[in-house]
Amino acid sequence: MADTTMRAVQFDGPGGPEVLRIRDVPIPAPTSGQVLVRVHAASVNPADVASRRTRLGRFPRGTGMDYAGEVAEVGPGATDLRPGQRVWGYLGTHGHETGAAADYLLARREQVAAAPASVDSVSAAALPTVGTTALEALRDKLRLRSGQRLLVVGASGGVGGTAVQLGRAMGASVTAVASARNADLCRELGADRVIDYASTGADASGREFDALLDCHGAALRRYRRLLLPGGRAATIAVKAFPYALWSRLLPGPGVRVVISRPRRSDMEALAGHVDRGELRPVVERVYPLVEVQEAHRAVETGHARGKRVLDLRR
């Protein structure tokens, strides 16, 4: 590899999108069990915004958790991957000096998996974080089974839209809660029914759901009442975490908190869903790296119709 430096988005302290800077930094070298990935695309997640705002951790810090690209170099112990192989992955939520919004990244071998063959890198980069989160929520927290009825609140966002598709692939009947303008998207993704959170009283549905996945957090108490006896509930929304803890002391099902971990087995499972046509990435907009601040501002609005993705090749 002739180049010795690369572009990387970093920030020196907490703040708004304006603290993000594109810098030239040394290309890192993989050590034992690590893989150097040339990044083709990386998506922007709400967790990236939260990390940018916090004072905790070391600085300078990079941004970006999920990516798609190709293997540039492997360290000892990572020989099951080969240079030139198309890969994707999820770095996890811990702060990194160089995150996925960089020309190259270092990842542990378990954070890297073969990318799905049926989509390009921009589409693939939209899935790792939301996909592993949705998969862990439905499979592990909610233990969703074929024939059950799933309610997804915030169904047009990254995790919500993925959960609608995975729930359908698992054989569940899926009801989506979203805004009226996103009802068509939810139906396209496989929702059997869509509830407009702004104009339809969810309580009118009665107790009918076996499982609830909350991706919004604003009205978790109300939606929890729609669960059948013995139903299960989980949330990914940070603002709902206090109620999730309090729910353990209330009558009815406790709400489980979902915090996903990077695992190759989950990435391989997601790739299978993509290549079988059961899961498609939803990309709202693609940005060049120089517009990373604008991408963060879009995520900060809280309004999503899929994912915002940075194309490192533009």
Score class of each variant (00 low, 15 high):
Arg181Thr: 14
Ser118Arg: 14
Ser205Ala: 15
Leu138Ser: 08
Val9Gln: 09
Leu212Cys: 06
Val112Ser: 05
Leu213Ile: 07
Asp203Ala: 15
Thr301His: 07
Thr98Asp: 06
Ala271Tyr: 02
His303Ser: 13
Asp196Pro: 08
Thr63His: 04
Leu105Gly: 07
His94Asn: 13
Arg61Asn: 06
Gly64Glu: 05
Pro229Thr: 07
Ala269Ile: 09
His273Arg: 10
Ile236Met: 00
Gln34Thr: 01
Arg263Thr: 07
Ala218Val: 12
Ala180Gly: 09
Gly99Leu: 08
Ala2Asn: 14
Val130Arg: 00
Ala47Ile: 13
Pro242Gly: 05
Thr5Asn: 10
Ser260Met: 14
Ser247Asp: 01
Gln148Glu: 15
Thr235Arg: 02
Val153Lys: 00
Val35Met: 01
Ala219Lys: 12
Ala202Glu: 01
Val238Gln: 13
Pro46Asp: 10
Ala41Phe: 05
Arg193Phe: 14
Ala178Asp: 04
Gly160Gln: 00
Gly230Leu: 03
Arg222Ala: 15
Pro46Asn: 07
Leu279Phe: 09
Val283Met: 02
Pro26Cys: 08
Pro229Arg: 10
His96Cys: 06
Lys307Asp: 03
Arg108Pro: 04
Gly89Thr: 03
Thr162Lys: 02
Arg193Gly: 00
Glu291Arg: 15
Asp203Tyr: 02
Gly217Ile: 02
Leu150Arg: 06
Val152Asp: 02
Val112Asn: 03
Gly277Lys: 11
Val153Gln: 03
Lys141Ser: 13
Arg61Tyr: 05
Gln293Ser: 13
Gly15Ile: 09
Leu249Ser: 14
